[in-house]
Design a protein around this nucleic acid. Sequence first.
RNA 1: GGGGAUGUGGUCUAGCUUGGUAUGAUACACGAUUGGGGUUCGUGUGGUCGGGGGUUCGAAUCCUCCCAUCCCCGCCA
Length: 505
Amino acid sequence: MTDGQHNGNQQQSNHHAAPRPSPNNDVKADTKGITVKKNDDIAEWYGQVVAKAELADYSSLRGFIVLRPNGYLIWERIQNELNPKITKIGVRNAYFPLLIPESFFKKEAEHAEGFSPEVAWIEKHPDDPERYAIRPTSETIMYDSYSRWVRSWRDLPLRINQWCSVVRWETKDTKMFIRAREFLWQEGHCVYETERECHKETMKYLEFYRQVAEELLAVPVILGKKTDNDKFAGAKATYAIESLMPDGKSLQMGTSHDLGQGFAKSFGISFLGKDGTTQTPWQNSWGFSTRLIGAMVMTHSDDKGLVLPPRLAKNKIAIVPIIFDDTKAQTIAKAKEIQKLLKRYDPVLDDREGYSAGWKYNDHELHGVPLRIELGPKDIAKEQVVLVRRDTGEKKFVPNAQILDEVRHALDAMQANLFEKAKAFLQSSTTEASEWNAFIAGIDGKKLVLAPHCSGAECEAEIKEVTKGVTTRCIPFKGDKPAAGAVCIRCGQKAKYNVYFGRAY
RNA sequence: GGGGAUGUGGUCUAGCUUGGUAUGAUACACGAUUGGGGUUCGUGUGGUCGGGGGUUCGAAUCCUCCCAUCCCCGCCA
């Protein structure tokens, strides 16, 4: 922040300059509000929402972002949602080294190849035997330890998760929360005695992800399996939750990998079974990142700024007293009383001086506070407050006696409404196609298109090439079977499964 | 990696063609005013014009080298 002279201001200016339409657009260029509409320029809009809600900021370090307290708080709430779910089934949190010796990478060939373009290496110190990488993911460093920890069937299942950050250097196009060179995530890594148990839990973690996305973030997702092209480097199969952003691009929000026995073999993890024989265990790994926050912001927010699902908001209510000189003391006193009444919702009492009420409304809207309570002399006289919902803007006059009930109801309704609205969008933006023209029409209509595919990797790559970026997103769990006689939309060969296609972040 | 552009207070920006040490807005600080949807006014803080070199009496402006960043293509969860 202090050294913003060079890098900092350029990051910012470029951010604003990117979609610059004309030199003198007469928008209120640097007032605090959002100066573009979500529908007009979603990239610029998104950046402003994130920046002005003070969730995150660009740093002077290229490709790296800063999670500000407001944004980090959301991450903590996500942690608090997932941790109880996973600990309940036996996962324990731990922490492994940031650096990974080069030799570890090479142990699993596919894994090494898949990650090599984006690994950041530490310059080799003369005293060190080899170079070290900053982890892009921790399979290798963790499984090296696992190989020493797992001896007997009694040591299984081994379930460990870590909350940390990873670095992937390939990403040049930084978008706050969505893509950066370093991001916070969790990665769970489990080892099992049987393939069946391993697969079952792989799916269990994916289900946890769905719950976090839908129940906490109010972002509806599609569950599916990645195609072989797209699966995690070194995995047997990758399962994912995918959401659809308002601009029609899909976003991978979490993955759970069934690793099979590949890593176990590469890292020498084995155990003595009940029968006394040496056996190779089965593994999975699963992760989601702060990208979840980006998906949430993009899904719900509007032209006035951030919209937070109530469950995610710390301060669920902003109380704005309408102050006049002659009634000031009385109004503030009443506002404090209401603040106390609602303290379980952690309301903020906005008694800042020098700002008009309207200014404060905008400020809280920008920051995504779910509910606003306006309280002025007129309300006090009528023994009521004005309750305003952030998502709908609906104003309601609520008698004092009903405040608690109405607030509770409004918060629940808002959480549900955000999810339903997003779900309706997802459904209306999803379509099916059985042949190429319909497929292209769907894609051009910014939809997620479910279409039969041959499963060929070259064919898949060709589609990406021809359409300039349309990729397979996932094979859905429901509706993955093509109709009898269905053929691949691209090559015309017999279709193996139905797969979602779309553009992606 | 290939191509195109840009760099002026914290942020955005005028000035560059035709050289004379910088414009406006916003933000920030203080004071007043105002207060039911971004109140108004005043005062003030803040700039080695990305960096080095050159031309010139004089460079934000002209020349040159360097640096940084962004956009398009490529690559990428």
